[in-house]
Design a protein around this nucleic acid. Structure first.
Lengths: 113, 113
DNA sequence: TCCATATTTCCAGTATTATCGAAATATAAG
DNA sequence: CTTATATTTCGATAATACTGGAAATATGGA
C-alpha cells in the first residue's frame, strides 16, 4: 500500500494545467506512448518548460520514460494510477458494506469509471 | 464531462499532505461526515490552518459542508471523485479494445480499486 | 444579555513552484 | 570529426501556496 507522501507526489504531478494535459495525452496514447517532441508540438510548449513538467510527472511516478534513439518516449503508468485511486478510497465508509468483493464500492454508486 | 481546469482544481485540493489526510479521513467517515473540530483533533492542526485547507478542499469540489448547530460537518464528495477518475482515464488507449462495457479498462488490468 | 464553543477571516512572513531563454548533453548520420 | 536533431539542465524572475496567531463571526445556552 502506498503512503500519504507518495500519493501527494503523484497528485502534485497531476495538479497542474500543462502536466494534466500531458498526462491525458499519454493516457490516450496507451502502451506505445509518445516522444517528448510530439508532446511539445501538440501542446505548444517550449522545450525547457516541457522538460520541467515531464520530469515532475516522472518524479511523481505517474509516467515512465525510455530512450529510443534521439527521442525519449513517455508513457502513462496505469498501475500507479490504480494504486493511487485505491489509496484515495481506502477503507471508504469504514468498510461498512461498501466494498463488495471486486466491484466498485457502494459509496461510488456502482460507477468507478 | 469535466474540464481540465476543474480537474486541476480538484487535484490541487488533494495534492497536499494535510488536505489528503483530511480527505481520506472523510472518505472513511462516509456519508455521516465529520465536524471540523474532530478533524482538527485527529490531525492536530491549528484552527486557522485547518480552515484554510478545508476551504481549499471545498473549492476543489472534493468535499461538501453543512452547518449543524455550532459545528460544520464536512463530507467527501464521492461523485466528484468518480468524475475526476473518469476524466483522468478518458479515451484511454484511444478506446482501442480497452473499455469493455461496464468493466475496468484493459489498461488498468481489470483492477480499478 | 452575556458567556462559551466552533469555525472562519485577516495578515504577514516564509517557502515552494512555474516560466523560458541560453547553454549543455546525448545520439545519429554524413 | 562535424553537423543536425532531441532533450535536459541551469539560472534568474515572477507567481502562488502554506503557516499560524489574533481578531471576527455564528450559534446555543444560562
Amino acid at each position: 500500500m502506498i503512503r500519504n507522501y507518495t500519493a501527494v507526489n503523484a497528485l502534485s504531478a497531476l495538479a497542474q494545467e500543462h502536466r494534466l494535459a500531458i498526462f491525458r495525452l499519454l493516457v490516450q496514447a496507451g502502451r506505445s506512448g509518445l516522444p517528448a517532441g510530439q508532446i511539445a508540438k501538440k501542446l505548444d510548449l517550449p522545450p525547457s518548460s516541457l522538460s520541467f513538467h515531464l520530469s515532475h510527472l516522472k518524479n511523481g511516478g505517474v509516467v515512465s520514460d525510455e530512450r529510443d534513439g534521439r527521442s525519449i518516449i513517455y508513457r502513462a503508468d496505469f498501475q500507479a494510477m490504480n494504486r493511487l485511486m485505491a489509496f484515495l478510497l481506502e477503507n471508504c465508509c469504514a468498510g461498512d458494506d461498501c466494498l463488495p468483493e471486486d466491484a466498485a464500492p457502494d459509496c461510488m454508486e456502482g460507477q468507478v469509471l
